[in-house]
Structure formats: C-alpha cells, structure tokens
Design a binder for these strands. Structure first.
Lengths: 193, 193
DNA sequence: ACCCATCTAGACAGCACATTCTAAAACGTG
DNA sequence: CACGTTTTAGAATGTGCTGTCTAGATGGGT
C-alpha cells in the first residue's frame, strides 16, 4: 500500500543522542542528525514536528531507560544497590549516559520546549521515579516524610553517584573500579534516614 | 586625550553572567548583552574580540571568585570547612553560582573556544585549584597520592556539595539550612583518606 | 499492470545571530 | 580651542540554522 520507510524514528533519536554526547546540544543540528543517519533533512520532519521534538523524544527515551534500571531496586527498599546500578547502566550505554547525565534539560530546551505530549510523557516518568524514591524511604522509614528526607535520598542514590561519574564521563574514558567503592562507602557512612 | 568609556569590561561580564544564569547560554546573545547594559552591540567588540571571549572572561572571573573562597581552607588542611564554604559563596552571589555551577564548559564553549590567552588563564586557575587539593591531602595524608585519593577529595569537597546545591540553584529559591547539615554529615561519615 | 498514500530527496525561504562598517560624538592635551 | 584617539551608535553584511515546499520514487493491494 505504501512505501516502506528506510529510516525509523529510533535512527534519528540514536543519532541525536550520539551527537549531543560527542559535541554538546549545539552539535545536534537537523542537518547533522540527517547526515549521520544518511537521510535528507526533510525526512526528519515526517517523524518529528520540530527539532525540539527530536531532542525531547531522545531525552525521554534515555530517561526511561535510566529510571527503568533503578526503579525496581528502589521499590524493593535497596537504596545502595540502586545507586550502584547506575554504573552498569552507564557502562552499557556510554553515549546515552553522557547525553542524559552531562546536560541539564535547561540547556537542551532553552530555546524551544518540546511539544506538550512529550512534556506530559516526561512528567509521568518523573513522577514514577519520584514515587519510587518515596517508596524506598517508606520501606525503611518511620512514617512522616520531610522535604529533607527526599532531598537526602535523591542525593545519595542519584546526584552523588552521578557526581562521582561525571568527571570520567566528561573525559570519555572507562569508569574506574573505585567508583563502586566510593558509592558503597558513601552509603555505609551516611545512611538514608 | 580620548573619549571616556561609558561601559566597562565588567559591565558586559556581569550582564553575560546574569543572562546565562537566568536563561541558559543561548540567552546570552551579543545583542541581549548589549541591551542589558544599555550599550550598542558594536561597543562590546571594543573590549572583547568575540562572543567566545566574553563568555570565557565571564567564566574565568566566576571561577577565580569561587576558587579564591576555597583555596585558603584547602591549603590549611580543612576539607570539611572548605566544602561548607561553598554555601556562603553561593548565597552571596547567586547569579554567579548559577552561571558557574549549573553549566558545563562544554555547553558554553562548544561552538567556539575562547581565545588562547583566556584559555591559558583558566588553565592557571585550574592548576592552582588542583594544587590546593593536593596540598590538602598531603596535609593529612601519609605520603603517596593515588588518582583515587584526588578523585575522592574532589568529590567530597567540590562535586558532592554542588550536587547537594544543584536542585535548589535550579529552582532558584534560597539554599535550605539542611544543606549545611548534609555536607557536614557527609564529611563525618566518609573521611578524606 | 495500475493506484495512491507514504516516503525520499534536496532545494529553498525566512529568520536570528555574530561580526563588521561608517559616521558622529566626546575629551584631554598641546 | 582644534586635533587625534577612543568610544558610542546602530545600520549593514554574511552565515548557518530551522522548517517548508516541490518533485519524484516506492511498493503492497487490487
């Protein structure tokens, strides 16, 4: 009935992630994405309504992959293992890790925000991740949940491990074995509650 | 002999810092900087050779201010106090903190790197900061300095405190009092060596 | 063999930006 | 009080980008 597509949505997303990971957000122009896929620029607009939509879709995909790796461990009340799970995830997909962990959304979306459907999807993902944090605290906590408790959990499980990885992600080399040790020691010395 | 300048180099640097802090790097166009200062765009080029030079000068100034606040404490072998010193520094100059701590250099300089003199100045600043870290470790260490020790010190004194502040810097509100507590507890639970 | 919705293909228009250019204004010194 | 230098002032230029437009290719269903 119709012509079969030579390029998939994922082709463009993957190229976008790679370009941002290698050269920052400004390196991911529509022409660079197209060139990397081997497609003409116009083809991107058959799948995405704008550049912001491509970046948004790429961000959502990376975020979903990341949270999927941690959420089960959080829900099981294992904060230290969740924090450590970031390492194999980052090692398995270095480009996605660089894309997601090295760039703030404000830098990616400062000019034009992604279209509403993508924003809504990201909000759902963020709420799910947040709920997992709350569940993790509740699993070992005493009842009341203060702002400070949530901030503390996010630091221990998310921000601090990423801070440990960031220098190595930037340099581009392999993640050193002592990263594991530092995360484990952090959790031993500074418990959740 | 010559016409006196109405606008100083610092006027432009300050405007650049403010614009990036408020709207990300892309908000700091030459025209936006000029408009904020109240100058014509051409005047910027009497002081800076390019946009990259303005951003580079702003970055160097912010970095110098930041490291100046921490270096004496590092050299005195007081890592925990150095980490805590980030808080008053960030509170005193919120815009500078947002500019420096919320944006990776790769995002600011991805298109065009700053001119060589500014790059050289930044390298000197970075080397000085690095030396202070080594001095701090040596002040309480046992002799040999491994990669891991330096990475550990930078995490405890620099990256981890910033990770604690980052969510609050992004939101733009005041830095909460429990930030102090978390940093102190981190250093109590996970010593330098 | 034909049809036609969907895709490839790439040129094109419009826009925003960095940088340059021209003209005029200021100012302290001789 | 004129001169030369530096600055203001903002228009003009050139570039590179996003998003659009036209033409043609494709391939399964009939």
């Amino acid at each position: 009935m119709v012509r079969t597509a030579r390029f998939t949505e994922d082709d463009f997303i993957e190229a976008t992630v790679a370009l941002v990971a290698e050269g920052g957000p400004a390196a991911a122009t529509m022409q660079a994405i197209a060139r990397r896929v081997g497609a003409p620029t116009g083809s991107i607009y058959h799948r995405f309504e704008s550049r912001a939509a491509v970046l948004g879709a790429a961000w959502n995909a990376a975020y979903a992959s990341f949270t999927a790796a941690l959420t089960p461990l959080l829900q099981a009340g294992r904060p230290c293992e969740a924090a450590l799970a970031i390492l194999p995830w980052a090692r398995a997909s270095e480009r996605r890790a660089r894309f997601l962990l090295l760039h703030e959304p404000v830098t990616l979306f400062e000019d034009t925000p992604p279209p509403p459907p993508l924003r809504a999807e990201l909000e759902r993902l963020e709420e799910g991740f947040d709920a997992a944090f709350r569940a993790c605290i509740a699993a070992r906590g005493d009842g009341i949940l203060r702002d400070e408790d949530l901030a503390r959990a996010k630091f221990l499980i998310f921000d601090a491990p990423i801070a440990i990885l960031r220098p190595h992600l930037q340099r581009g080399g392999a993640l050193p074995p002592f990263a594991e040790r530092m995360i484990a020691e952090l959790h031993a010395g500074m418990p959740l509650t």
